[in-house]
């Protein structure tokens, strides 16, 4: 009769483990492409650099392609390796995470399109809070992806709370732009463009929360929604309290 232990058989699925590591690396690479796209697109808007925004549109095509490549790899791994338990949660979650990242890339592309459509029109105001939102969102994304590869539940649960800061910046931008529109209705279109930029960046932070939820699921098997305090705020608004 034979006895077994993990130590003796640590190399039992070496090929599979290498492939899982490759997928994680690919997710990180996709993540850094998205981070770069978000920072660059806001920078291009700030500088009103149309050419740079056009490059963002091309970069988005690469992001989409990378997402499909990873998805294809994941499908092959699931079909050929029949992952179970932790492996299954990881691969299924990667499928979700790359979809979130690809959508974040679309937000960057959306901002690039706004810059292109603005043409020669000057910015309604110098951009201060919008780059802050982008920086905050990218920072959250970066740490969320680090928590994902390390399966760091504690960090993953803490990051979504920071979404409140992004929401606060967005509300501030909203109020400021409304003041412009009220005092001079001809600024409506230019205010609207910036509002859309703010909205896209606000959605980036929301999607970071989804990635954090997946990380918790991979590590613990528990599929729960991580609530930010902002959720409570809107709940209270709805209840009129």
């Amino acid at each position: 009769m034979t006895t077994y232990s993990r130590t003796e058989d640590a190399m039992l699925r070496k090929t599979f483990e290498n492939e899982i590591q490759q997928v994680k690396d690919d997710v990180l690479l996709l993540g850094s492409m998205v981070e770069q796209a978000i920072l660059s697109t806001v920078d291009a808007l700030k500088k009103r650099d149309i050419k740079a925004s056009q490059e963002i549109l091309n970069a988005d095509k690469l992001i989409n392609k990378k997402r499909f490549d990873i998805e294809h790899k994941l499908m092959i791994l699931i079909a050929t390796q029949q992952p179970m338990a932790h492996d299954l949660r990881l691969l299924a979650s990667c499928m979700e995470i790359i979809s979130e990242l690809e959508r974040m890339g679309d937000y960057a592309k959306g901002i690039a399109n706004i810059n292109i459509r603005m043409g020669d029109a000057p910015l309604l105001k110098p951009l201060i809070d919008i780059p802050r939102m982008a920086q905050k969102g990218v920072d959250m994304l970066h740490r969320a992806l680090t928590a994902f590869v390390n399966e760091d539940v504690e960090t993953a649960q803490r990051i979504p709370v920071e979404d409140d800061e992004v929401d606060a910046l967005y509300n501030q931008i909203y109020r400021e732009l409304m003041t412009f529109v009220i005092s001079d209705p001809t600024t409506m279109e230019r205010a609207n463009w910036l509002l859309w930029v703010g909205h896209n960046l606000e959605r980036v932070a929301d999607r970071v929360t989804n990635i954090c939820e997946r990380t918790v699921f991979i590590a613990t098997g528990e599929m729960t929604e991580i609530k930010s305090t902002d959720d409570e705020f809107w709940k209270q608004q709805k209840n009129g309290s």
């Binding site: 058989d9 699925r13 599979f16 338990a85 932790h86 492996d87 098997g221």
Partner: peptide
Amino acid sequence: IFTNPKDKRTEDYVTGRFG
């Protein structure tokens, strides 16, 4: 058992790291 086993040894076995 196949998505979130409680015992580490079950996890290792069903994921093929063991046995």
